[in-house]
Write a protein that binds this DNA or RNA. Structure first.
Lengths: 331, 331
DNA sequence: AAGATTAATGCAAACGGTTGCAGCAGTGTC
DNA sequence: GACACTGCTGCAACCGTTTGCATTAATCTT
């Protein structure tokens, strides 16, 4: 149905190779000829067939983007950033959702590998070993996980966690709970390590947990009965769930317990109390990741992996407040 | 680098066509041969090249999914539903975000058209005319817009709006504001028409508006100074923004104004007051749309367009309450 | 036992582009 | 005027699969 390069060639009285060059290497063809070809192409509504082009060039001009949960607002912003940026480079981004399942994650990478030039792997749940192996199939950029020898986009979440805990400490909190994220998460580990390294506090770690509202909700009782006054959650979704659960149990936030989230999603700005959180530059991460990936794709085997670290920053709202000493269990 | 069909053929001592058939029409090849081929393929890590296959079959086994805003939770659930369902049919879904821009929407469809077998167009902002034209390029299923002669997935949002307004009326509200959605939106029109048809109320329509939190926030003053006691918003994002704005102006919700949203996103469950809303079955819509599209793709030209209508239902929470008569401007 | 049927496989031409190489005209150089 | 060079275009092979058709051997009919 659709016009092919041959139709255009015939219509403009040149060879197919000239038409091809008109699009892929315009400087090689005479201005006059080029215009004639372009006119004919326009006329016939010709658009190059990407599949055919991919066959000879080995470049699909597609990128894969794998996230744990497309419904998590953090990821949607990352996706937006990646897609918009890729479009300016004449690339398309294929998004896939693993539903937090490492198995699905592995399968998706395998399938995507053949139809894209590179993959953006965000917050992987797979083991390093498996990722290393998969890398032979397709170039990677890994977001939110430090992996030697690969291109990485990281958020400085350790420093964010330190800042968050520092904030709690400055409000007088000493007994602090950390709600960890899912098992395979590098970010979760990073946060935990940073929190553990803060001196002078008494840290209780809960987890691993599902990084969702439900995950947070499910922890409300445990947190309420643990002897803590401050909480840092793996992400905003969990923090919001936790606040909801605590409120339902009659535990006031921030009256009896202060809660800090991570990500800065919209829901955190509209939930009550408004959530104190560590903002993550999700959109910038998406853009940066695309840049690094295209760099990798362009360079082929010889590529040097790059590392980008993006700053985070604490946003103080209403879910954190000073410790109420009279309410402490021990005097 | 990667193993091709030829490598497998050589390794198993058969012709390439036999290898091809082993995968695409297994019943045509002898069991013994097939096993030999499969073993060799496994051994070499062979996976068929989709681009090459697409070239001869004309089927890419990819679907396009176009949404106005991937960060809108309503769409993310729709996407999740579509992707998961497509995977079970050995299809992949390409998601693209138009940023609410009809121009971008048109371009995206054009570009996608060549690399997918069909497109899921969700809540289009384009005019019917343009969509009709674009349909010649690629099969469509349109979600959230009634279009004759095309496959449609609709939510019964008119009935949802009626129910929402009925709820407000039953609480004593008579002067009601409707916050419309973006200009090209069929859903917005549908809601407006339904609301206008409700007898015995005094309806003020604001809009068109940007269907985001900011859109709602921007309307707070106008709503506060309009003489209304109840509001129905085009979606939850706007409703949440409005509530935020009203609260900031000292207008109590639901004390002085009751607010109803549409969609049932998570943020509505955690914002305070919890949002009364009309739930939309987003995930089911995604699944259904994929079904209809594959039906269309399979049937080719002869396909009969189908229409699926999904039910909505009102969820009553805390952002709506009885009219306080003593506060009304006129006695 | 000859002919018809069936199952399994091979052959080769597509699909729609890209690209190294060759050819050719025009220009500049000595 | 021979030569090299440059700019443009055509030629044809190739990318990895699919698929209609031909071929072959084995099985079935009568």
């Amino acid at each position: 149905m659709a016009a092919t390069i041959r139709d255009v060639a015939q219509a403009s009285g040149v060879h197919v190779s000239t038409v091809s060059r008109t699009f892929s290497a315009p400087h090689l063809v005479n201005t006059e000829t080029r215009n004639r070809v372009l006119a004919a192409a326009e006329d016939l509504g010709y658009r190059p067939n990407r599949a055919a082009r991919a066959l000879t060039t080995g470049r699909t001009h597609n990128l894969g983007l794998i996230v744990a949960d497309i419904a998590n607002p953090f990821f949607s912003h990352l996706i937006k950033g990646a897609q918009a940026h890729a479009r300016t480079r004449d690339y398309h981004v294929f998004v896939a959702d693993t539903d937090e399942d490492p198995q699905v994650e592995e399968e998706l990478i395998q399938t995507l590998a053949k139809q894209v030039d590179g993959v953006l792997l965000c917050s992987p749940r797979l083991s390093n070993r498996v990722i290393e192996k998969l890398r032979e199939d397709v170039p990677f950029v890994v977001v939110n996980r430090r992996m030697k020898g690969m291109s990485n986009v990281l958020m400085d979440v350790g420093s964010g966690a330190r800042e968050a805990i520092g904030h709690l400490v400055s409000l007088g909190h000493r007994r602090i709970a950390l709600l960890a994220g899912p098992a395979g998460s590098w970010t979760s580990r990073e946060i935990t390590d940073a929190a553990r390294a803060v001196p002078g506090i008494d840290l209780t770690v809960f987890g691993p947990n599902s990084p969702t509202e439900h995950g947070g909700l499910a922890l409300a009782e445990a947190v309420a009965s643990a002897d803590v006054t401050g909480v840092l959650a793996y992400n905003d979704l969990m923090a919001i769930g936790l606040v909801e659960g605590l409120t339902a149990l009659g535990v006031e936030v921030p009256g009896r317990v202060s809660v800090v989230g991570i990500d800065d999603i919209v829901a955190g700005r509209v939930s009550r109390p408004k959530l104190t959180t560590v903002a993550m530059p999700a959109e910038a991460a998406g853009r940066t990741a695309v840049d690094l990936l295209l760099q990798l794709v362009g360079a082929g085997e010889t590529a040097t992996p790059a590392l980008a670290t993006l700053a985070t920053n604490l946003i103080i709202r209403d879910s954190t407040g000073p410790v109420r000493h009279e309410l402490r269990a021990d005097p």
